[in-house]
Design a protein around this nucleic acid. Structure first.
Lengths: 244, 244
DNA sequence: GGTGTCCGTTCGTGCTTCGTAAGAAGCAGG
DNA sequence: CCTGCTTCTTACGAAGCACGAACGGACACC
């Protein structure tokens, strides 16, 4: 599983936290001061760093900055006080989250997992808002609306739609979709066909003559890139402003 | 690099975020309220706007709408709470992404970069698009158009055309085409002949006197690399040898 | 335990596409 | 002009493909 570098000078705290993290399934490396932390980070390239702000020698903030100079590894900072000033300072130097002492080890583990989920999971694809005409898909919130009304899409339907909209105009074979949306490398491709059908039923104005989810004969499916992909094209907006 | 307009009334937040964005290589303009934002946007035409939803004077939502009326500039919205109402409102007014407070500045930078990547480099860019005169073939989308109108090509026809257009001017024997397009090492070469004919029917202006898919006698076929960019019509084509 | 939703599969239907065959037309050389 | 070869054209049967409808299992919620 993931590898965590724990930077903490107090042996007692380090011990407790280290045990908790190990128990949660992380591989834990430990460093007692800033220099050791930088050296270890360079050596084992951890997936996340838990960093005490108060350190002997190199200050935690400096360590944070130095780490940032050469990698984007997520950092969770341990601060002594819960003051806004400290928090801003911590975030400014590049921390992804912080937790104030005294803290429960359990909470720290939760934060670590949360940060990892945030930084590891999202990158591949899908964040932000996808649009096509009056169809709006919020990938993060998992909400799809058309003309302001929310659509009741199931999990698979949503993923399929989001994926296709994230690659507008590109044609994908059923097998490819099965692989990229379902995460399968085997399985029956007709599954995709059926889901496309169900999706059209909900998304298309006239499901029998689709204009968004198009069939590419002999290949698979493609999301309409055509008009008004991103941004608002002339036709729809006007209304309110109307000064002429 | 890209120019970002940051609209935020809280000076502390604006300061931190602004510094992060600068550090990430963006040129940052700042506005403290809605009116200033609109004025600045008109003046420096930013590549992206980071917009706080909660603003003194002109509300962020109104700013968003006003921006949208005159440009398609990407907008990342900062919302106070993860409230459903706020989100939906933001989405409906045309934001491209949103992020809820409290947020880590790093995450904001990532979002900004992600949105820019999405909106600045839209699909038909680096993707394989083949052109010859008014004939455009988008390999990824598997769409072929002539004079803007899409051509209904079948799988084989498309593959054949794409292959020939990818090697303009080069002549291929039927057997070679059978091998490279069909993936066959055996089989009847007349298959190719028929498909060329069908393709001409759809692609050539006058199928009886082809100008794109040319026959090379005794060899096979070749795609015309030639000129004829704009309206250079046939009239005098007369090929090379004008000897009677 | 019952109910409803979601999901993956299967089957039948109608249409599209493909490859081949066979005759007509075109080109080159003697 | 004739001959042999190549290319064009047309037509047709078979296979492939997309679609729609319906079924049974899995799961979560009540």
């Amino acid at each position: 599983m993931a590898r965590v570098l724990l930077v903490e000078d107090d042996p007692t705290v380090a011990d407790v936290v280290g045990r908790y993290l190990s128990h949660a399934g992380f591989e834990v490396d430990r460093a007692g001061d800033g220099h050791a932390a930088l050296a270890l980070a360079a050596e084992c390239s951890p997936d996340l760093v838990v960093l005490d702000l108060m350190l002997p020698g190199l200050d935690g903030r400096q360590v944070c900055r130095r780490l940032r100079e050469r990698s984007a590894v997520p950092i969770v900072m341990l601060t002594a006080l819960g003051e806004e000033a400290d928090r801003v300072a911590g975030l400014e130097t590049g921390a992804d989250d912080y937790i104030t002492k005294p803290f429960s080890p359990r909470e720290l583990v939760l934060r670590v997992q949360s940060v990892l989920r945030r930084t590891l999971a999202p990158p591949p694809a899908g964040r932000g808002v996808l649009r096509a005409g009056s169809l709006v898909v919020d990938v993060a919130a998992r909400v799809a609306t058309r003309d302001g009304e929310s659509l009741a899409l199931t999990v698979r339907e949503f993923d399929l739609l989001a994926f296709l909209m994230a690659h507008p105009g590109e044609a994908f074979s059923r097998v490819t979709l099965l692989e990229r949306v379902w995460g399968w490398t085997y399985g029956d491709a007709s599954t995709v066909t059926v889901h496309i059908r169900r999706l059209r039923e909900k998304v298309e104005a006239d499901p029998t003559t689709p204009v968004l989810l198009l069939t590419v004969w002999g290949i698979g499916y493609r999301f309409e890139a055509g008009v008004s992909a991103s941004g608002v094209t002339a036709s729809g907006v006007s209304a309110s402003g109307e000064r002429s």
